[in-house]
């Protein structure tokens, strides 16, 4: 079966920033976390997928179809949630829903009503009077109510309190119980992905620097801690990033078994979090 989302050699050039041959693919039934610092190119990539920006090169295929040539068809099967509320804040929840619903072929009003009941969203309230968490849940209700196969989310949890974040993540986990659906989720809060992501794509300065399954990363990568005397030019080269202070060093490697062979019990090797993986890959001062 073809991937639900496939991005190949995607390019976009600005004066001070470029997306350089971005490629990755997402299969049906999985959640992909798209991580990177602010300004790394996450939103640009998502805007190119949604045709909000025009690409300078490369290919984007959704359900095996070009995202521009088959724009209306593919957008009917995409649910989107953005980092901010871009709805008309002067309208009520129901008014906004009525307007949006009319454009989707498979809009399911019962499902929408179920979600807003579950999320305690008051249907007659104006959108401007909803809290940030409520707005995000409303956005998610819209995204989930037209039988979309692909959910595209750009930093949906940024600015939310931990309870609202956790609720949103639970909903995403439930969504993915359906094996035909996938979620593409950009965030810089990597702890969100520790729980729910199957795949991780890391972007830095417009380039994909890591694309792998989360389990593979967490199984193979290691956070190595030890005395700085152990480090020489050759061993340093085995690290993705390294941080040295007066007491010793801490560094990230992508093959912890190799480290075990080299240093044995002289170092402590811990399981990294996704945040460690992102930081050591992207922080220039950690680079070897």
């Amino acid at each position: 079966m073809e991937p639900i989302l496939e991005v190949k050699n995607l390019r976009k050039n600005y004066k001070d920033f470029s997306l350089k041959d971005v490629s990755f693919k997402l299969d049906r039934g999985y959640i992909m976390g798209f991580i990177g610092q602010n300004g790394a190119g996450k939103s640009t990539t998502i805007k190119l997928i949604m045709n909000l920006l025009k690409r300078d090169g490369g290919e984007i295929k959704i359900f095996g179809k070009d995202n521009i040539k088959h724009e209306i068809e593919v957008k009917n099967k995409i649910g989107f949630v953005y980092d901010e509320c871009y709805f008309y804040e002067e309208l009520t929840v129901l008014e906004m829903k009525e307007i949006i619903a009319s454009f989707y072929k498979e809009w399911d009003d019962d499902l929408f009503n179920k979600y807003i009941k579950e999320f305690d969203i008051p249907p007659k309230k104006k959108i401007k009077d909803l809290s940030k968490g409520m707005k995000m849940k409303f956005s998610l209700s819209i995204a989930l109510s037209h039988n979309a196969d692909l959910l595209i989310m750009d930093e949906p949890t940024s600015g939310l309190d931990p309870v609202a974040r956790s609720e949103i993540l639970d909903i995403l986990s439930d969504t993915i119980q359906d094996e035909n659906k996938s979620v593409f989720f950009s965030t810089h809060i990597t702890s969100d992905l520790d729980k729910i992501a199957d795949y991780i794509v890391l972007i830095d300065n417009g380039e994909i620097i890591l694309s792998s399954s989360k389990d593979e990363i967490l199984d193979n990568y290691g956070l190595v801690k030890g005395s700085k005397e152990l480090l020489d030019d050759e061993t340093k080269r085995k690290f993705i990033g390294i941080k040295v202070n007066n007491f010793g060093f801490e560094g990230l490697v992508n093959d912890k078994k190799q480290m075990k062979r080299i240093f044995g019990d002289m170092v402590l090797i811990e399981k990294p979090t996704l945040e460690d993986v992102m930081l050591y890959h992207t922080r220039r001062d950690f680079n070897v």
Binding site: M50, N51, L52, E71, I72, E73, K75, N76, I78, F80, Y82, E84, Y86, F87, Y88, E89, E90, I100, F103, Y104, K105
Partner: peptide, 18 residues
């Protein structure tokens, strides 16, 4: 002006509308 204030074009362009 409401459309621009709310940046609603982000939503409108993302919907299945030409």
């Amino acid at each position: 002006s409401y459309e621009e204030k709310n940046k609603a074009e982000m939503i409108l362009i993302s919907l299945p509308i030409k």
